[in-house]
Amino acid sequence: MIRALAALFGWLALVSASAAQPGRAPVALDVILGDTLPRNLSEFRFFSDGIGQTPNARVIGYELNTPLFSDYAVKQRFAFVPEGQTVRYTEEGVLDFPVGSALIKSFGYPADFRDPGSPVRWIETRVLLRRESGWVALPYIWNEDGSEAVLARAGRRLPASWIDAQGETQAISYRVPNQNQCKGCHARHDEITLIGPQARNLNDGSRLAQWVDWGFLDRAPVDAPRLPVWDDESDGSLAERARAYLDVNCAHCHNRDGPASNSGLFLQYQEADTVARGILKRPVAAGRGSGNLAFDIAPGDPDRSILLFRMQTDDPGIAMPELGRALLHREAIALIRRYIAEMPQPAS
């Protein structure tokens, strides 16, 4: 249901962005490039109608094959690239966005996930601005009537509730990250960087070529790498889908240059070293975080695997990822459990 809602939002955004927009003021490039931190999201002019989030010219909606889990929030993703500029294709890592670009991501919850027409309460919109000095991350919180989103550099806790796909009422204290917490996921070599827009995660068979046609991307090789859709059993093997999920949800920290590099656990999809991926790898540190278990992944034995142990707890001192979730991702836990259970044990 989350994927269906996201696909609908993305389609509507593409239709809106491609339509003629006479008389509408363009995106405020001077605000993106400026030295100030705008108080109101509307100052950028990314959208024409506040919480309706109809994108302005040169603002396009997009989806990812395998998205980051954020407590079941639905998301709308947009990218802006200045007129006359293009994104540079890179096969590995994130695409290279030119100065003046912006990435915009809104988070919210429909009142009832069982109803595709259920209204969505948008809670926050996070913005990444590509300035001359590098990327700047800013969180904005929507007011009650959806007329404006206001900068919240200190973050905030907000109540959120909804009826899930099983008909159960869910309620959490939703955390809007503060500006420093944004760096917890988006920092590499002490600089803010992107996470989601990698060629392999954008490549759904046509999206990269569309971006080229629209003048957003410089090229799209026909053999561009592609990340499977983690929850689509027809798209890749069990191991490929499990590794896709771990790549998106864990590898922004668990990579050789990331904040968790000292763990020795590297979960990027393209990682070839099986021990580095956690298979029969002993933890760097013992204690609560390891559950006193011996291996990050114990082939054939999910209940003796630290990776799954940390995914299926909500204890803030143990849970992984450390930021961005208060709930267990039930469907992903089931996937990783099956992945480990069916993993062949090494020959003795």
Rank of each mutant, 00 (worst) to 15 (best):
L8R: 14
L8Y: 12
W11H: 08
A20V: 11
P22D: 12
P22Q: 09
T36N: 15
T36W: 03
P38V: 07
R45D: 06
D49C: 13
I60D: 05
E63Y: 06
P67I: 00
L68E: 09
F69E: 04
S70L: 01
Y72R: 15
Q76L: 03
F78C: 05
A79P: 00
F80D: 11
P82C: 15
P82G: 12
R88G: 04
T90V: 05
E91S: 09
L95N: 11
D96W: 07
F97Y: 13
A102Q: 09
L103S: 03
S106V: 03
Y109Q: 15
P116T: 05
S118G: 10
P119M: 01
R130S: 02
I141C: 15
G146S: 05
G146F: 14
S147A: 15
E148C: 07
A149Y: 03
V150L: 07
L151N: 01
A154S: 05
G155V: 07
R156K: 03
R157H: 13
A171V: 00
I172M: 01
I172K: 03
C182T: 11
C185E: 10
H186V: 08
H189V: 07
T193K: 02
G196F: 00
G196Q: 01
L202V: 00
N203M: 12
S206D: 05
Q210F: 00
D213Y: 03
W214S: 09
L217R: 10
D223Q: 08
A224W: 00
L227Q: 07
D231C: 06
D232E: 13
A239S: 13
R243N: 12
C250G: 03
C253A: 05
S261P: 01
R277L: 03
L280T: 03
K281S: 14
K281N: 07
P283T: 10
V284A: 15
A286Y: 07
G289H: 08
S290Y: 07
G291Y: 01
R304C: 07
R310Q: 05
G317K: 08
E322K: 12
L327T: 15
L327P: 06
H329T: 00
E331Y: 08
E331A: 09
R337M: 02
R337K: 15
Y339C: 01
E342V: 11
M343I: 13
M343V: 13
A347F: 14
